[in-house]
Simulated assay, not measured.
Amino acid sequence: MSWKQYLLSKEYNYHKENGERLYKESSLGEARIELEIALEKLQKIKTYEEKNLLKLLNTISLDLTEQNLSKARYYWSEGDLENSLSYFQSALGLVRSDLNRDEILIEISKLKLEMTPIEEIKDLELAVKKEPENINILLDLALEYGLSGYFDRAIHELKKLLTLSPNHEEALLRLGNAYQDSGRYHDAIDAYQTGISQNASLIDQFLYRRASLSFFSQEFELSLSFVKKSLDSNPMHLDALILQAKIYERVDQLENAIDSYEKVLSIDKEDTKIMMEIARIWEDLGYIKNSRDIWREVLALKTEDIYWEAASEKLRFYESMI
């Protein structure tokens, strides 16, 4: 506790006790003044606590991000590309800075290019030259470009495909994704809104993607409205459920966030990442017993992944305090 926080705490206790004493003595006007001062001091204490907690959370997020990036780069250097990609994606889920997120996305694009042999792209390019109006080949080439980080090329091929087949839902969805991955968010919104207006079979995907764009621009109410519509269309959409949980967290509806995460677990009971998310919320709310129960469930699965390790560390920490 800082010296300023200590003084605020002392002042809060003084005015609170004084207000309670005056109230008992029936000096209501003076009691009201003292208790209002106490409330003001309490709000300042809470502000300091929130700032310190946010600072600690940012530090932890940075440390966890660096740990995952370190493991991702190690596995990449060892030639284990699947594990490398897994840790890069974990880092991407933890990072809070948009700048760092973009840097990680660049590394993931380079890794995916290494995972997808360039010969495959060359073969598809040759196939397109032979059959320039073959929709399936155009889509395959666009997908390979996107996976390899060549978003502009992917966009070019998808536009050609949509000229040939304007109502091709998957091409339109992939076009929106390519725009989003390349940072062209307004174009991505236009693509997703076109898909939503068509109200076709992939409507849940278009709505989910539109919700994710609103989420990253911190338009949480708008994001929530889109994600709810996505789930109305497809209640089993795992990504939409996870996004809904994240939105509820950001708008401080933590019980709803837990409910959304638990719906994910009802579909995939052994998703250790989601189990750890629920445990984290219970921990933040001060219900450590609930968190401990979940951490033990994670350990019982014996996955020995990063979430298993995190659960083990959490249990050791709290058990050392007993």
Rank of each mutant, 00 (worst) to 15 (best):
N199W: 08
R174P: 02
I294Q: 03
V227M: 07
Y12I: 00
S165E: 10
E309I: 10
N13P: 01
S260A: 14
L35D: 08
E17C: 03
E144Y: 12
L57N: 13
V264P: 00
A154C: 05
I196R: 07
E297M: 08
R101T: 05
N18S: 15
I242G: 03
L54V: 10
A245D: 01
D181I: 00
I155R: 00
Q198N: 10
E313C: 06
L254Q: 11
H186K: 14
Y150G: 00
Y87W: 06
E297P: 04
T272L: 06
Y208L: 14
F226V: 10
I258G: 04
A91S: 07
K246W: 01
I155Y: 00
D181K: 07
G146W: 02
E283A: 10
Q5A: 09
Y23V: 03
K263I: 08
R209C: 09
A211F: 00
Y179C: 03
A191G: 02
E11S: 14
V251A: 03
L164T: 04
R184V: 04
E20W: 05
R209D: 09
L105R: 13
A310K: 12
I45H: 10
W295G: 01
L124H: 05
N167F: 11
N136T: 14
Y192N: 02
K112L: 09
T303P: 03
I33E: 15
K41A: 06
E107L: 11
S225Y: 00
G19Y: 07
L105T: 02
I108A: 07
